[in-house]
Write a protein that binds this DNA or RNA. Structure first.
Lengths: 305, 305
DNA sequence: CGAATCTATAGGCTCAGCCTTGAGATCGCA
DNA sequence: TGCGATCTCAAGGCTGAGCCTATAGATTCG
């Protein structure tokens, strides 16, 4: 079997024209070098050096093989270097899970943070919905993720809360916003709920259901959409009200529904942000970096825990 | 230390997504594959696969490293193939020593023979004079050579005669050619001697000296030139006569001195062609090929021995 | 919830690969 | 010509890499 070691020794002998000098250069004893060359000659089935009195002389076969050996060793070295560069975040890909409204808190800004520190890396923020992220984590395609309160059953998953954010009621009607929203008011409301929020915030969904159930009314969502942005736009158009995390409201209302505002619920509800990864896993430096930066960014908007 | 074996196993695992399946593909037991991957991860200092329940999943580091690993293995394979091609004479360089008048007998035609059999190879016929060829053989730069009777001291050299050729006297004067040249006639002649012939044909030189000495005359060479071609041309111009091997005369006279002819010496003298290489060396297939072809070609002109 | 599947670990074996020592060959110089 | 220096090769011993079998632990699937 051909080996990089054999090629290294071959080149050393070729350049030195002597087994002894090659051995010195490589830090080996001379017989070891001799054995390597013999082994290479045997595996290739050719004679590489003519043993002639004092020293050895490369054959024309050795001349032919030399550039190939050099290319092979260069490629191997390049492989090694690539690993080192990835280790130092000079290159490579960092993949991180993030779904639900979490991306509103730490999406583009998080990517910017990573690129500011490590200009060479590729960043992938993956995850459309909770089940996809949960699946990716379970299957190992994702090492870690930042999510807005997992409906992910924590089967074998380690969930670490990092911040919480109030759930608020948003509306384009100033009258509605004049006082906190009680269960009774909520039951009478006409709501648009984004799928992402709805699905990702288990506690909120449960609490909302509870509040609605108390009034004897079934799901009051008049409209269901995929993106929270669309929900906010619809609120801005006065077609419905909605319930979203405060950070999302602060960030989206001015841009998508400048005429709308937000008010607390009564009692107050909270959404939760958490880091999640497989229980018992040792996190890679890349994952640790992403967790650190995402946590920092989310905690600057929501309330640290 | 990085090894090709590790990279091979790495790619197998990457493609199969499973240590067990990779082990089957490679014909190993599963723990061996596990050990190789662990070794590679240790030498590179990175995590390549996330062990997750059933099977393993490549990390982004593995994604980055894969093309490098593939390139490295491809280069190694190319090295191996290059050796095989050289072995089969599909490519590579064949170097063969040949000096003196031998090239007139087997020069261009010999190259043609080699290329006809092995179109891919490079052919080098090296050697200007006997001492250079002798030195190259001694130093190992040349594996074997076909020479016209060595002044090479056969110190550690194995010399195998393959043919002999008569030494003839050439002249542009028909009168001179009417009968064999005796020592007496030779002493009176005005000669042009080519360095190559002069130096390479030890026996001839000795015999000529002897013949001349018997008549009490010192070296009768009026002109000394480097190439036998020039000597023949001078003979054609009628400026001097010369003494060269018969084969050379047959080949060169019609072309360079059509008005000249040749006649035997009396007693007859013979030049010798021989294969020479280091004593005790096992000849490479390339050298054996050259010896075979060169011998065949020379023997078709000169007298086999 | 049990069977199947997969990885990790432990223990044992063989051989590659390194070392040291010494023999054999060659070269350079007195 | 002979002797010392230099170099390769051969032999023997040692360590560790690498492979195996058997088994435990974890996860998935029916």
């Amino acid at each position: 079997m051909l080996s990089l070691h054999q090629l290294t020794v071959f080149l050393a002998v070729y350049e030195q024209g002597s087994l002894t000098r090659a051995a010195e250069e490589l830090g080996y004893a001379q017989p070891s070098v001799s054995e390597q060359i013999r082994g290479l000659e045997r595996t290739l089935g050719v004679t590489l050096f003519r043993r002639v009195g004092r020293g050895v002389v490369p054959t024309t076969v050795a001349d032919t093989l030399r550039p190939h050996a050099e290319r092979t060793l260069a490629a191997a070295e390049e492989t090694r270097l690539a690993a080192q560069r990835v280790k130092r975040f000079e290159t490579g890909t960092i993949r991180f899970g993030m779904f639900g409204v979490a991306r509103l808190y730490a999406g583009a800004g998080l990517v910017a943070d990573v690129l500011a520190r490590h200009p060479g890396v590729r960043v992938e923020l993956v995850g459309q919905n909770s089940s996809e992220v949960a699946e990716d984590l379970r299957r190992g395609r994702l090492e870690a993720a930042m999510i807005a309160m997992p409906s992910v059953e924590s089967e074998g998953m380690q969930v670490t809360p990092v911040a919480r954010d109030e759930i608020v009621y948003i509306s384009a009607d100033p009258e509605t916003l004049s006082s906190p929203i009680t269960a009774k008011k909520l039951a009478q409301a006409s709501l648009v709920m984004p799928e992402t929020t709805w699905r990702s915030t288990d506690s909120v969904r449960t609490l909302l259901r509870q509040m609605l159930h108390e009034t004897g009314v079934n799901p009051a969502t008049r409209i269901e959409v995929e993106d929270v942005e669309i929900a906010v736009e619809l609120v801005g158009l006065g077609l419905a009200d909605s319930v979203i995390p405060r950070g999302a409201a602060v960030q989206l209302l001015p841009r998508l529904a400048p005429n709308a505002g937000w008010v607390s619920m009564k009692p107050k509800l909270y959404d939760m942000f958490a880091v999640v990864h497989r229980a018992g896993a040792t996190l890679s430096p890349a994952a640790q970096l992403m967790i650190e930066l995402a946590t920092k960014r989310i905690q600057s908007i929501a309330t640290p825990m």
